[in-house]
Nucleic acid binder design. Structure first.
Length: 480
RNA sequence: CGGGGUGUAGCGCAGUUGGUAGCGCACCGCGUUUGGGACGCGGGGGUCCGCGGUUCGAGUCCGCGCACCCCGACCA
């Protein structure tokens, strides 16, 4: 391992991010431009995220299925705004088995179209509804500028696709899944995103309404970290998803889709990371505790390892994810830095002094240096560790909220607005017009992130840009 | 596609008037070490982005490609 320090986040945030992703062994570049290799450490994190999400999907009545990666090109063309949105970034297969294909196949950029085609065959009666399916897969979008986890040609995600009998049910589903993402973000990833409705220009191509969760990164830029769409009857009409209602009348279905991707890993890195590296929220961390044995000679080693084995077994028995770093030839100091870079939330050092005193040394990743270090007795070590993991989880969330709110302001006027979005989020009255959003973007590089559904103390206000009376406020920020 | 930059060991770089390639980290071996990034000795690893040209001789000079990165237009 390099002994070089990381680039500091304040000096070059971008450099810090790229370096930390590589050095922490989360991911690497693939051989084709813009592709990503997720390394085992990064994939384990993804698996933990998958489990936390999948549990929530199952709890809300969804089931998983697998759908084809190849989609007939003509499917994409069926829904007008969907084509418009996705055609610039499609990967298209024209040759198969050495022969030119009759019809080109699109590598799925998302599955709404093939789902539409399939649901129209499956759904005949109101008794078939709702259909609540989720897919775990990867999708391909031919991006021009890429960045590990945040935007690559291929990325891994889940996409939920549901069909309902009524608008109300579809809208309820859309909002329910938004809630699932908010809950996942807060309680698993210790991220407190803003959330709300997307503006017309920011919504998903083919959706009536898009909702998103928007998290503030360490450089105060916004990252869209999950989306939930009410697709109305757009895809139902394009793919003829109809059912007979209980009056024997044909009706179009109302569909939704919602997704969260490996991009969220980027959100975790950029929410919690510091100049020592990344910080994993305990609930998702591949290793929750790293145990570092310290010893000089073989005699000390066998004594120390006895305690290490006993304590690690006890922790493992209580489902705490422990990793013992017993590699030879690395000093403890080296290992401290190594695991701090990788973000393990809690480090336990056990050396001869600890064995003699029936103690262990615990070091919190979220509190750098001596202040985060404590020597505690081995008594009830399991409950001490699991309590501390909860404390760390909570403090990460609290810190993230404080940072978010400390960098979000309501502007007095447009000059003030420009000042705010240069280095933070603005919550401002906004008319919602495309022209206003475009003007603001060319002026400030900031775009509307979402329009929160919040109780406003006054009924309306003047749009921050054009001054027109507006009933909503929107968050504005520069974004990834 | 516009504007800027870089291609030399896995990574980061040096390479003088053109003379046959080196440094740091990483890697392998042996020994001493180990409570905040250990040290010594030994070792392996190179179509110098590609093609063409000038020359007795090109990493170096000239021409043409290609790739990648950064900044803009598009994006979970």
């Amino acid at each position: 391992m390099s002994k070089k320090k990381l680039p500091s986040r304040t000096e070059d945030y971008n450099d810090w991010y790229n370096t930390v992703v590589m050095r922490a062994d989360l991911a690497d570049y693939g051989p084709a431009r813009g592709t990503m290799i997720v390394k085992p450490y990064g994939w384990t994190l993804w698996e933990n995220m998958q489990q936390a999400l999948d549990r929530r999907f199952k709890d809300t009545g969804h089931v998983n299925a697998g759908f084809p990666m190849f989609i007939p090109k003509s499917f994409i063309d069926r829904e007008a705004s969907h084509v418009e949105g996705f055609s610039p970034e499609l990967a298209v297969v024209t040759i198969g088995g050495g022969k030119q294909l009759e019809e080109p196949l699109v590598v799925r950029p998302t599955s709404e179209t093939i789902i539409g085609h399939t649901y129209s065959k499956w759904i005949k009666s109101y008794r078939d509804l709702p259909v609540l399916i989720n897919l775990w897969n990867s999708v391909v979008r031919w991006e021009l500028r890429t960045k590990l986890f945040l935007r690559t040609l291929e990325f891994w995600w889940q996409e939920g696709h549901t069909a309902h009998a009524t608008y109300e049910e579809a809208q309820e589903e859309t909002l329910q899944m938004l809630e699932v993402y908010i809950d996942f973000a807060r309680n698993e990833a210790a991220i407190a995103p803003f959330y709300g409705r997307k503006s017309n220009s920011e919504k998903f191509p083919g959706a009536d309404v898009t909702y998103s969760i928007e998290a503030m990164m360490g450089d105060k830029k916004a990252l869209q970290a999950g989306t939930s769409h009410n697709l109305g009857q757009n895809f139902a009409k394009a793919f003829d998803i109809q059912y007979l209602d209980n009056n024997n009348e044909m009706q179009y279905c109302w569909t939704t889709s919602w997704g969260l991707s490996t991009r969220f890993i980027g959100a975790m890195i950029m929410t919690h990371g510091d100049d020592q590296g990344i910080i994993m929220p305990p609930r998702l961390a591949p290793h929750q505790v790293v145990l570092i044995p310290i010893h000089k000679d073989d005699g000390q080693k066998s004594i120390v390892m006895e305690t290490v084995d006993r304590i690690s077994t006890e922790l493992l028995d209580h489902d705490i994810r422990v990793h013992i770093d017993d590699r030879e030839g690395f000093t403890p100091g080296h290992k401290f830095n190594y695991w701090e870079l990788r973000g393990v939330p809690l480090r336990m050092e056990i050396g001869p002094k600890d064995v003699a005193n029936q103690s262990v040394t615990l070091a919190r990743r979220d509190i750098v240096g001596k202040e985060g270090k404590n020597i505690v007795s081995q008594e009830n070590i399991t409950s001490k560790v699991s309590d501390l993991l909860i404390v760390i989880q909570d403090s990460l969330l609290e810190r993230a909220i404080k940072f978010r709110d400390g960098n979000t302001c309501e502007p007095r006027d447009y000059d003030h607005f420009k000042e705010i979005v240069a280095d933070g989020f603005a919550l401002a009255w906004w008319c919602g017009e495309d022209t206003c959003e475009i003007a603001i973007k060319s002026d400030t590089k900031a775009t509307s992130r979402c329009i929160p559904d919040i109780d406003l103390p006054v009924k309306g206000g003047a749009c921050i840009y054009c001054g027109k009376m507006s009933k909503d406020k929107a968050y504005f920020a520069k974004s990834y």
